[in-house]
Design a protein around this nucleic acid. Structure first.
Lengths: 344, 344
DNA sequence: TTGTAAGCGTTATCAC
DNA sequence: GTGATAACGCTTACAA
């Protein structure tokens, strides 16, 4: 006797000699509501298991207007910062019954727009996005069109979109303040994507910390163009080819600081004796580098967790009247050995 | 005049005073085939753009039995090894018009099974999985049920499933052979998940390299239970609490070796003067650690790339008759400073 | 307590 | 050249 293959709720109903209605009800846990006999219920459940019936989410989604899916758009999943956030979001989404569609925008705004539309076409119930640049029209558009959306990491100034990010200004300020406390005055900041919001805020903190300590600022103290290792490398080489190089470098990402390390090494300098270094993004390896690195830690898992919470809240409340929630998470300065105390 | 909101191909057809059939045809690039007038075609295209019509992939998928979606199941997206693979898979999938559903199985076999079913219910067109353990029935089941599937990283011995992984045996063998060449005899291998295939193969290579060099092997030379940092830390502390500790450690993952570094540091030893270390998985930071680390590099992006290629091939050919493709990628020994030459 | 049938947004078959 | 309609697999109002 060959075992029938069940692709369908229909096949299942046929085998059981029941209507698909009854089968559907049992499978959706509505047996009691419709007073389906315990016997029938058990038969359905047994058959579903026996024939390994897997409901078709497409059909279900089409009918119910629910896909139990979120979309996640991030600039680079191979950057451990975003991988950590993705981990947290995946976990939190799954815990709430949602699957995740992963989109890597490769720091490309055109692709980001495309990906948002793709997610929309897949009828995701919500989108979490770490935006690439300063453009936000497409995000606002999807938000007001009714798709719940949360921005993580890269918020926008004065925008009415729910968002959650680190207090990048605070992080930048504290980092540089610490450098100054250690006696540094000639500081160079190697930045990431200049237009991106976290970058701007960190730079803002950098400048304010200088100002606060009466240290003159000029534009040559800020170099760099993106968050990559290559950028960190090139800028460091460039900076040290100039006369009067800095005593300290402030790197605005984990990848940038790796590039700095490479350049420093090639040039033949030592950290912190010849140059000091402080970097955004704590990583598992930060403590085990040639010189254990002083870093600004961000609350990555909280970020992911809150992002999903805010999204789910939007879905539940369906209340576009209320002011969108904007959260800022405190950063944390982790002091190790990569900054020299010039005052000693 | 308020702009109408278009949710539907129906709405679009109404606005244009055309049938949905015609609209659908134009939108699917079949205008020429059905000899639709250039004028009509242009009107449809313009309207679609103007009203920002986004096709419903659920309905499309239901009808066509195509979702343009792959599923990816990996044990831990925050492990940079898997993040790199995911990056490559996402890129390659997207280049071929597929989106990616990301599932993190958290090294949990029950969850892995559940996730596979979830992906099936979402009607993904193919699944790429880095399996958690030794169980493969659920994978074989979905493969023979007709859903294209590729295993990455963690293959199974003697299994008829398409798979692509590193030559873990070679990697293990070369690593240990190198240690022996440098004069090491007392070597401890801190392994990952013992039942997992890559782990077994690496251990196999470890043992064969010893044997090959007439160095006696005993079970106490292999310790550890998973690929985590904590495992690396605990095992190192344990090993060095014993009398007659090893002169060299072979760590079977990037996270394990970070744990080793932490323990070594706490104990107050130096690498490579007091202990040598060689580790699986090259990472961007490997070269910048306290002692630049000697590592076994794996071809992560090739792995992702080939995985997608194999998947797409399965979809195209629909030919379950041919023997499933199994690929092994060569590993690469990167020599730095973490192994001491005892023969000097 | 169970069944019939409409409809979710598409595409494909057949007609004109 | 264009259009009406069935069908994809499911849920649910309405019937029985």
């Amino acid at each position: 006797m060959e075992k029938k293959i069940v692709n369908d709720i229909n096949d299942l109903a046929n085998i059981l000699k029941l209507s698909i209605t009854t089968v559907s009800r049992v499978l959706n846990g509505k047996a009691e509501i419709y007073r389906i006999s315990p016997d029938t219920k058990q038969r359905v459940l047994d058959a579903a298991r026996e024939y390994n019936y897997i409901p078709n989410q497409l059909a279900r989604g089409l009918k119910l207007n629910k896909t139990a899916t979120f979309g996640l758009v991030i600039p680079d999943i191979s950057n451990p910062f975003f991988a950590d956030i993705a981990k947290s979001i995946e976990y939190e989404a799954r815990s709430n019954g949602y699957s995740l569609m992963l989109c890597d925008s490769r720091e490309n705004i055109a692709l980001e727009k495309e990906l948002i539309n793709l997610l929309l076409s897949h009828k995701v119930e919500g989108i979490i996005v770490a935006p690439v640049g300063t453009q936000s029209e497409h995000l606002i558009q999807t938000y007001i069109s009714g798709t719940p959306l949360v921005i993580v990491d890269r918020s926008f100034p004065e925008i009415d979109l729910p968002s959650i990010c680190s207090d990048n200004y605070q992080g930048g300020f504290e980092a540089v303040n610490y450098l100054i406390l250690m006696g540094h005055k000639k500081i160079v900041c190697i930045q990431g994507i200049p237009e991106s919001f976290p970058n701007k805020e960190r730079v803002h903190g950098f400048i304010d910390a200088l100002r606060n300590n009466k240290i003159p600022f000029n534009q040559s103290m800020i170099v760099g163009k993106d968050f990559s290792l290559e950028n960190g490398y090139k800028q460091t080489r460039m900076v040290f080819s100039l006369k009067d190089p800095p005593t300290a470098i402030f790197a605005l990402s984990n990848l940038i600081s790796l590039g700095v390390l490479q350049a420093i090494k090639e040039i033949g300098l030592m950290i912190p004796d010849d140059v000091s270094l402080i970097s955004f993004d704590e990583q598992p390896y930060s403590a085990y580098l040639g010189t254990p690195m002083t870093t600004i830690d961000q609350k990555k898992s909280e970020m992911g967790q809150f992002a999903v919470e805010i999204l789910i809240k939007q879905i539940r409340e369906k209340d576009p009247g209320t002011k969108p929630l904007i959260m800022k998470l405190k950063t944390n300065l982790i002091i190790r050995n990569s900054v020299k105390n010039l005052k000693k």
